[in-house]
Design a binder for these strands. Sequence first.
RNA 1: GAGGGAGUAGCCAAGCGGCCAACGGCGCGGGUCUUAAGAACCCGUCCCGUAGGGGUUCCGGGGUUCGAAUCCCCGCUCCCUCACCA
Length: 942
Amino acid sequence: MQHEHAYDHAAIESRWQARWADADVYRMPDNATDPAYVLSMFPYPSGDLHMGHVRNYTITDAYARYQRMCGEQVLHPMGWDSFGLPAENAAIERETHPREWTLDCIDTMRDQMQRMGFGIDWEREITTCEPEYYRWNQWLFKRFHEAGLAERKGGEVNWCRSCETVLADEQVEGEAGETPEESHGDGGAAGVCWRCGTPVETRTLDQWFLRITEYADELLDAIDDLEGWPENVKGMQRNWIGRQKGATVEFDTAYGPVEVFTTRLDTLYGATFFALAPNHGVTREIVADDPDLAAAVDDLDSAADGEGKRGVFTGEHAINPATGEKIPIYVAEFVLADVGTGALMGVPGHDERDHEFAVEHDIEIRQVVAPAEAVAGDGADANGDETGGVEGDGEADDTGGADGGRVDVREAAYTADGVLVNSGEYDGLSSAAARDRLVENLDSAAHEVQYRLRDWLISRQRYWGTPIPVVHCPDCGPVLVPDEELPVELPEFVPTPTGNPLEEVESFVHTECPDCGAPAHRETDTMDTFVDSSWYFLRFVSPHSEDAPFDTERATDWLPVDRYVGGVEHAVMHLLYARFFMRVLDDLGLLGVEEPFERLTNHGMVLLDDAKMSKSKGNVVSPEEILEQYGADTARLFMMGVAGPETEFNWTERGVRSSHAFLERLLETARGSASEATEARGTDEASEESTTGETNGTGEVGERPIDEYVARETDAAVAAATADYEAFRFDDALREARSLVSLLGRYRDRGPTDHDVFERGLRTAIELLAPVVPHVAEECWDVLGGDGLVAAADWPTPTGDAAYEAERRLVENTREDVRHILDVAGIDDPETIEVVVAPDWKHRALELASEGDGDAVGAVMADPELRERGEAAAEFAKSLDASYLSGEHLSPDREFEALSRAAWLVREEFDTDVRVERAADADEELAGRARPDRPAIEIYEA
RNA sequence: GAGGGAGUAGCCAAGCGGCCAACGGCGCGGGUCUUAAGAACCCGUCCCGUAGGGGUUCCGGGGUUCGAAUCCCCGCUCCCUCACCA
């Protein structure tokens, strides 16, 4: 059941959206100097905004608005990551063109964003599927190519036998139970074709790659300096790059030397078998004239994971380069072609996986490394050679099967470093030293660094992407299209039952070689869409530039993006590719910045009933509905108030309603204040009634403690909320703003208010709320007769330099103490509550003690005046512990003022008389009980 | 298995060396307002206590420190990423 809206959000929102547009508030001039660059990851235009988008953009919008109010020039742009497979699918399904479908979706989503009130500079909108944008993908591709960073080479890709086409990884559907998560890059996925269900094979085809591996070290090492990035993202990137330092070494075989990579060269003497990947070159040679063996190898499943260590003995042997021993060569399932060299030395004594294989195939297990303490215990010559060496060598610890310094490698592999045994001349060396020594001594051995990161395969055999600007000439080979001929535009879309539609467009394919003019055919592959998103944040700097992808000078000034907000799912791909692009562009002299994103925030998910919202599960709350029912501000306020940006939270109807109710109240309060101001002007009738009990203060409206209290709280709220906005703690900032509104409500309800105090409070609250609920804030601002737009107003600054925190704490603690006393003492009907601030000398003593070096009593008693206090001073000094000393303290005057201002709260709560006094004006005994931060309290019963 | 993160009162969730018995929200209890309900607002919500006190807490166990939810070590549990990675 819906109750009627006390405010017409639809009218208010569209009114202010129009006003913002008219006033061009979000326009970012090109001549700005180092503006605040606040960015949300741009969306794929799927057709509808979902809650995740709304949360994402609300976060950046609120921060951008806050920054703008702080006087910053703010770049908060939006664009569309609009190439990609779904559009192609949708076009086929709906018998339309991917471009039309995409542009329709963009229109819908732009409209939704505008209705959400996101303050975006639409003049800078970019759409990656437009030639104006993707021509620069092509241009950049050429620059990469010139720098030797784009190359064509054989790559493993997914191939569907039935469709006779290459499939992008996304076009490979996972088998039972597996989610077809995105995994770009190399092929090898085990799955089925998305169109026909045929199991996907792997083929090696010539494809275009960007050589990101050239930047592996740089990208990895620079992660340490990304201080504004979350640890998990940094960890994922490190992991993904996967640098591993070790060594290569060759084993001789009847088919020539075969290289292996190992991180544990020190275990070389323990190598008792040799293993090849099923599709290793040497495997093919061995198998070539042995059909039985070939069949056995064929039977191995290279995609098998986990259980069992299947393998086939080839009958061949390899020569251990260190010992000259002959060891059996196996073809093993667990050896992967694309890891290391596709071949490995098996050391069952010191590698768990090898151990398992050896046990299954009855291979000798030999110990060649012992825990350091075991060797020392034997009195063996441990040699003490700790020259250190290769990165990543760990201290010998007792992991991996060591037990009391003794290990039995027949039981389990001992995988830790230690001291060499059974290793001839290397016995007694530490693992690390042995690794270095072996590399020195063996001709075929060399230090080697390996990466998990592979070059980035950007070729995609589909229509809806950036055409790779290459022409294949029978004579000249692949030739790049000259810059003047860019962009290579996509031809009309012709749906084809299978394969890449581009191949079917003769007018596109048939062309001339730019070099020799001979008939040639155009490359029909398009680029991975991650190319588009690897530099889009640069395009926003000069979105209409026609002679460069972006203005170098301006980009160098504006970048990096100050705050980048998006989902964790882009932790590796997008964010790594973008970092790669930036570094290349920097090296090419097109940019003077190396890292794209200064501070990165991964927003949490929006849940419904503890589950991720998803269309397939049907548990989706559509922004469209919320927009209609409650309005944009309600949705924004709820999302921002319920949790910090990184925390996931549950969408609840209740929460939404309470946010909506708050906005209604706020609006009523503003309207009430405005009408009161007009009516009651001059009507200063004394309603002294409610002020008669005031002990401190004159009772004149505007000069009463309560007026001062409200004024002070207004400043305190500003101070706190500002710190919260700075720290991206929007939930806390909103709490401050909301509690200020609530205080103002009480202030108004309890009697005559000072109009200036009240209105300043209200205006301030509106300003604090404006970044999150911009429409209602504008409406209130307008009602109150504010100057211009709040969106363009100055962020409030607290007047004075008050210790707001300390004051609030003092007041709160004192109030709690009063309640506590009343409760514990069982006083039901207090008549007077007397609050006495500690005497000056105690404050002075505290000050001296905190300045002194530990000896509080000494420091205090050294002061002649305090010494005169005798016993009392000594006692007090003794009671000062370190935590008390380290705290922030108010002066006696400040304490007195803060408590006086807040006295009305106590008075109201307990319906009693309250007296706040200075020590000098109070009973001596009572004053004696007071300490700084802790006034004495005496309660008199009726 | 490797790397990252986390375990805080009924629940969610801050805090990350002293101001912490520990913010805030939900739930629950009391109160104000109201014809009533709801909303809103105020108070309470580990135990004991007739004056602001005391006791026992922040996964478990050790340690560092005058002082630890906060730092270090060990263990347990959970989440995420990568993974038969040589």
